[in-house]
């Protein structure tokens, strides 16, 4: 069942150097419960695409449908995880997760507690963000989005600022959340390993113009091993695609 449909999406920026085609004819569909990663070089428009889906940016041409209705503005249907945790520094962890919802309501308090356990932060409910590490804070941000039961969770390079160990730990946690909650995930990254490790489908984007160059299905069983030969095979396929893309880019920029 299709949950998210992107149909003929175009977006151009006007800059001093002229028009930049940030998104060019983007089409794809996402099924309910799927984990899709979007990967590409910087400037390929992957974050722009995610912001458009979130409704944070509506200056595009084309259509985005979520669960049959068109996306026009931000809403809690589309949970959004930014590159930084963006917690409210004056609220404790549990209040950050509840945010505008009343934490003293029993069912909300219960759900917040369940999420704190899910993100493995038991005992930190009354801590302030300044007492958390970067990975912990990002997990709180994920819990905050999950509390609203989003139809899709949009993640914009959420682990980009974390060190390698914390990052792989966070990937475990995210997979665990996905397996338990069955939340549909759309995850932007520039890390090939991360893209393959998490996804059912990897969307490869290329720059100038920002467009989808390939969609690769990853049907390895979970838990995945990065060192396994099947994992490496997919990695090679994706790397090959990138090399092709780079050549094309060279040709484009040379004006041939």
């Amino acid at each position: 069942m299709t949950l998210l449909e992107i149909h003929k999406l175009y977006k151009t920026f006007d800059t001093a150097k002229g028009k930049v085609h940030a998104l060019h004819d983007i089409n794809f569909q996402c099924k309910k419960g799927e984990f899709i990663t979007i990967i590409g070089p910087s400037g390929c428009g992957k974050s722009t695409l995610l912001k458009a889906i979130a409704g944070l940016d509506s200056t595009y041409k084309g259509n985005i449908y979520l669960d049959g209705s068109e996306v026009k503005a931000p809403s809690i249907d589309k949970g959004f995880i930014f590159q930084e945790p963006r917690l409210f520094p004056w609220m404790t962890v549990e209040k950050n997760i509840a945010a505008d919802l009343p934490i003293n309501k029993v069912e909300i308090k219960k759900e917040v507690e369940r999420l704190i356990q899910l993100i493995r932060l038991d005992g930190f409910g009354t801590s302030y963000p300044k007492e958390l590490s970067g990975g912990m804070a990002q997990r709180v941000a994920i819990a905050r989005a999950l509390l609203r039961n989003p139809k899709v969770l949009l993640l914009d390079e959420p682990f980009g600022a974390l060190d390698a160990f914390t990052r792989s730990h966070m990937q475990e946690v995210l997979l665990e959340i996905w397996q338990e909650n069955r939340t549909t995930m759309l995850f932007v990254t520039h890390d090939i390993d991360e893209a393959i490790y998490l996804a059912n489908k990897v969307i490869i984007m290329s720059a100038k113009p920002g467009s989808i160059s390939d969609i690769i299905t990853v049907d390895l069983p979970f838990p995945r091993k990065r060192s396994s030969s099947s994992f490496q095979e997919i990695r090679h396929i994706i790397l090959n695609k990138f090399e092709k893309v780079d050549e094309l880019e060279l040709i484009n920029s040379a004006g041939i």
């Binding site: 959004f80 505008d100 609203r148």
Partner: peptide, 10 residues
């Protein structure tokens, strides 16, 4: 940036 969060969380 926090205002953006408030928007996303409605």
């Amino acid at each position: 940036k926090l205002l953006d969060v408030a928007k996303v969380l409605e």
